[in-house]
């Protein structure tokens, strides 16, 4: 029996729904459904819902950006951070945390805003570095991304090591990723950016298929490769910067989920992008549950969990067959 793509998507949707329920019921302490709905626990329910939404959106967005960049750069090792956005946002956030940069009119939004803008400035720099005349070389994009990341990470380490203990913990905590969010408007903005990004890239995904065959091949098939590169570059930069600015660096999701999704549903990006979004959401929700449960009462940074759980799972998958026939 051949499983149809829409059946896979349906199955993933149901799984997403299932793990969402699970995540609401077992946070750092398990609560029965009846008690969770009681008015006394409304605060907890609210926290768990916002956290669930952020984990879903972040997982989905990171996985989709990973899928886009792997196709666009023709590189199976590409992930949302490969072009240097994480180090840029990280540096912005560390500066904001350690130098107590609180622009009064922005209040608690100053950290995410600063991280978001720093991320975009960095990626723009990487873009300029790899632009030769009217063309942008994808090899140079990768190289400049790696170099800028190395340099900015060095600066982050320098700042962190040269500061007092207090700020250090919150900076490190931020760098390792988290899914806590208290500002509803911020959550709405980040969710909107992610959802729009995922939908638009799904509709543009046919171009990504052609792009993944190689640039010269794509040109002879009538694709305006520079335009397509620029569009996907903007979409993935804005999505990544938005997620990083509220969640910090959640690694590994953007690298492994597209590979897993490709094994489940095939390489056509029109199906791969939605499937990656769903798998990414499911994966991050599960990791978030683990992050809260494993070392109770202390919570683990979610970036730690995604990497530790993701690697063995991925190795297992690599050893299995290539593509469902």
């Amino acid at each position: 029996m051949k499983i149809k793509p829409y059946q896979i998507i349906l199955f993933l949707l149901l799984s997403l729904f299932g793990v969402s329920l699970l995540s609401l019921l077992i946070g750092s302490v398990s609560i029965s459904p009846a008690r969770l709905l009681s008015p006394a626990l409304r605060g907890i329910l609210f926290l768990r819902i916002t956290r669930l939404i952020l984990a879903t959106v972040a997982g989905a967005a990171l996985a989709v950006v990973g899928a886009i960049l792997q196709g666009l750069l023709k590189n199976p090792l590409a992930d949302p951070y490969i072009l240097g956005i994480s180090s840029g946002s990280g540096l912005g956030a560390v500066i904001a945390i350690l130098f107590g940069l609180n622009l009064t009119f922005l209040g608690s939004l100053s950290l995410p805003l600063f991280a978001f803008l720093a991320g975009l400035v960095t990626i723009f720099l990487v873009y300029l570095l790899s632009k030769k005349g009217p063309r942008v070389s994808t090899e140079d994009l990768l190289l400049s991304g790696v170099i800028i990341t190395a340099m900015l990470s060095g600066i982050i380490m320098f700042i962190v090591s040269a500061t007092e203990q207090e700020g250090l913990h919150s900076a490190l905590w931020w760098l390792l990723g988290n899914t806590q969010i208290y500002d509803l408007k911020l959550l709405a903005v980040v969710s909107a950016i992610s959802v729009i990004g995922i939908v638009v890239s799904t509709f543009l995904a046919r171009n990504l298929n052609i792009m993944s065959l190689g640039e010269e091949e794509a040109i002879t098939m009538g694709l305006d490769v520079e335009k397509v590169k620029l569009i996907f570059f903007i979409i993935s930069s804005v999505m990544t910067a938005a997620i990083v600015s509220v969640c910090g660096m959640i690694g590994f999701v953007g690298l492994i989920i597209p590979h897993i999704a490709r094994r489940i549903i095939g390489p056509d990006h029109r199906r791969l992008i939605p499937a990656s979004a769903l798998c990414g959401g499911i994966y991050l929700i599960l990791c978030d549950i683990l992050a809260r449960r494993v070392t109770q009462p202390v919570e683990l940074p979610i970036g730690v969990v995604t990497a530790i759980c993701g690697a063995p799972f991925f190795i297992l998958l690599l050893r299995r067959s290539r593509r469902p026939k």
Partner: peptide, 29 residues
């Protein structure tokens, strides 16, 4: 480039695709 590709097509030595698209998927492109 888009309009020109209706008048002229090219076949190279081989196609090294990173992803395993099916023949149908490739030809549809």
């Amino acid at each position: 480039t888009h309009l020109f590709a209706r008048k002229c097509a090219m076949v190279g030595q081989d196609l090294m695709s990173l992803f395993s698209f099916t023949v149908l998927e490739i030809v549809l492109m």
